[in-house]
């Protein structure tokens, strides 16, 4: 019963933040609303018992990525007057209709999970799985998922170099 509280609270926070993020005109407010949404999501992760991921969510997402967003917003000097207002008429209702249809369809399609299905026993990795146990996660990451992990680090490197190249003032033509 205990996990309902952080999940429910975090979920509402996340949804509200998301709604604000897409609705607010001021880009800075929108990014901040997204930060709120990320924090709510982190709360949900805590509720799910994945403390480590909750922490990462806060550190990486709210702390790094969205701050990067903020930087960019300020760098390009985006003011509310630069942002066109939400469309009216057909584009608005059409988009809402599409989104609702999507939501309804997916919820309806996933309704089977509403019935409490028994969880599948996890033996694929063979490590007793505890989210709280950082040691266990590190072990999995460096044994079974060693190669993807390395590829990921490479990806990060590529992203780093790419971003540097892209934002150079005068790239070699």
């Amino acid at each position: 019963m205990l996990s309902w509280i952080p999940i429910g609270l975090g979920g509402m926070l996340a949804l509200a933040g998301a709604a604000l993020a897409i609705a607010l005109r001021d880009p800075i407010y929108a990014v901040l609303a997204l930060v709120k949404s990320m924090l709510g999501l982190a709360l949900v992760y805590f509720g799910l018992g994945a403390d480590y991921f909750g922490a990462i969510q806060i550190i990486v997402y709210a702390g790094a990525i969205l701050v990067l967003f903020l930087f960019v917003v300020m760098l390009v000097n985006l003011t509310p007057s630069d942002i066109p207002p939400l469309p009216r008429g057909l584009p608005l209702y059409g988009a809402i209709f599409l989104a609702l249809l999507w939501m309804g369809l997916l919820s309806w399609g996933l309704r089977a999970f509403g019935r409490a299905l028994p969880p599948r026993a996890a033996e694929a990795v063979g490590v007793p799985y505890l989210y709280q146990n950082l040691k266990a996660i590190g072990k999995v990451l460096l044994t079974a998922y060693a190669l993807p992990f390395e590829v990921l680090s490479l990806t990060l490197l590529v992203g780093l170099i790419g971003a540097t190249l892209l934002t150079q003032k005068r790239p070699k033509s």
Binding site: G94, A95, L98, L101, W102, L105, L106, G109
Partner: peptide, 11 residues
């Protein structure tokens, strides 16, 4: 919107 409409149809 086209993309999403098609994805919807696929769903």
């Amino acid at each position: 919107a086209y993309f999403i409409t098609l994805a919807l149809l696929f769903l």
